[in-house]
Design a protein around this nucleic acid. Sequence first.
DNA 1: TTATTTTTCCCCAGATTTGACGGAAAAGGG
DNA 2: CCCTTTTCCGTCAAATCTGGGGAAAAATAA
Lengths: 265, 265
Amino acid sequence: MAEPSTAPGNGETIPAPAHAGEVRAEAPARIQTIALVDDDRNILATLSISLQAEGFATRVYTDGEAALKALLDNPPDLAIFDIKMPRMDGLSLLQALRAQSSLPVIFLTSKDEEPDEALGLAMGADDYIAKPFSQRLLVARIRAILRRSELVRAPIDADSGESLPDTVVRGRLQLDPARHQVAWDGTPVSLTVTEFLILEALAMRPGVVKSRNQLMDAAYSEDVYVDDRTIDSHIKRLRRKFRAVDPEFAAIDTLYGAGYSFADG
Amino acid sequence: MAEPSTAPGNGETIPAPAHAGEVRAEAPARIQTIALVDDDRNILATLSISLQAEGFATRVYTDGEAALKALLDNPPDLAIFDIKMPRMDGLSLLQALRAQSSLPVIFLTSKDEEPDEALGLAMGADDYIAKPFSQRLLVARIRAILRRSELVRAPIDADSGESLPDTVVRGRLQLDPARHQVAWDGTPVSLTVTEFLILEALAMRPGVVKSRNQLMDAAYSEDVYVDDRTIDSHIKRLRRKFRAVDPEFAAIDTLYGAGYSFADG
DNA sequence: TTATTTTTCCCCAGATTTGACGGAAAAGGG
DNA sequence: CCCTTTTCCGTCAAATCTGGGGAAAAATAA
């Protein structure tokens, strides 16, 4: 198996390539570093390449103790441990790490290790992923966790900062993302999760046409695909529920051949 | 492309049946191509047929090296590799491919393979599927991945970035791609998707003559060919719709023998 | 487990859109 | 001015899309 340029020894930081493979806008792109700890060098190499392609810098360790030291000394933004490792396994490593650090950690587990999940999470891992897994899933989890920890780290700036608008109002629609609650002219309408997500995607950008694919993206995780008509079904039920409250309801427009949109106020 | 068309069973592009099963939203039907790499011709044949039935075009390779070359030369929309293959196995193939391309890849794995070794390494792929799998599952995964890569390519919208150049104004014409909305002197004109795309192509470059072929490219994602007269028909409908709003409308010029253009403002 | 929701899929009838045709009209060339 | 080429326009049948009604499948709750 081809090895990465340098033998995956311990701790070299491999910068991400300049043109990160995937597009990610967000903040003024600071390259984030991820530490990988696993005894299998092939896995390390593959993971490393994948993550670099996604725009992360990586640091790899095959030895738990060495890793621990480095993680404390010069913490990355996130660490990924294999649960099973020879000298010092992932759980012990996490335990030792947690004594001094709150670094975000993702566990890798083999399929046949159900109980470890609970255990790992209880011990303070931020997430765990069962092998084998897709690159897509891993990257999604990583980004989710990094986003979360950034929010914590950069807490509610000024006092005024907490200004997350509780409810979004779009004409006669009131929508409360935090509570998953919706009302029309003040009358509450009870929606299922999927319905809510689709409505939210539409209502957040009134007038903008959302294709069925875009709505799927809003309502489902990235690795799920459902039939286009399924979106239609949800729209159907949304309309029905709103019509039950207001027979004249017509705020969800169909754009033949394009998708749906929420009527501008 | 430098086709290694000599190698039997390598690289024939098999067109999908005319009436593809799936619906397209934004731009009219572009048939997507999937490359299949596997040493087992039976599997290739079966997969190929299944996928064609779902409206994909397929390209099959039994040889890893030939596949690599073709994938780089003339990339499909997505590739599916069997992990185990004689000359160049799926893992090496992926690694080699990843060095130069971010083409979406799905791995096929056998159930009885060393779970940790092989599967752990499959992580550089975008997704993997364990054999045996249902056709339904495979197609769902494929669509999920294609949807995602389409979404990446298309939208700049994002939740936060309000910085969308919303409407394009060309003289008395206002045109809003995101909303699929068009107005003349402020009066809305309702267009179909095809009409919209053609008008957009013209209006984006006022005064520039667009040949019918160019307009076709704008309206049909490059795979579909229709009669020249059909463009005329769309122009006709466009003019009619605008004239309904402004009898003097004359912003779409005919360039005899060349094509059409949108009048400079 | 069984009972309820929720979600997905399928199918059809009715609308809408589309590509193509044919003849009339307009433009260009000599 | 005549003839040829190209475009315009009305029309129509075919293709495509949408709105629902359900039923089957999954997910949740009890």
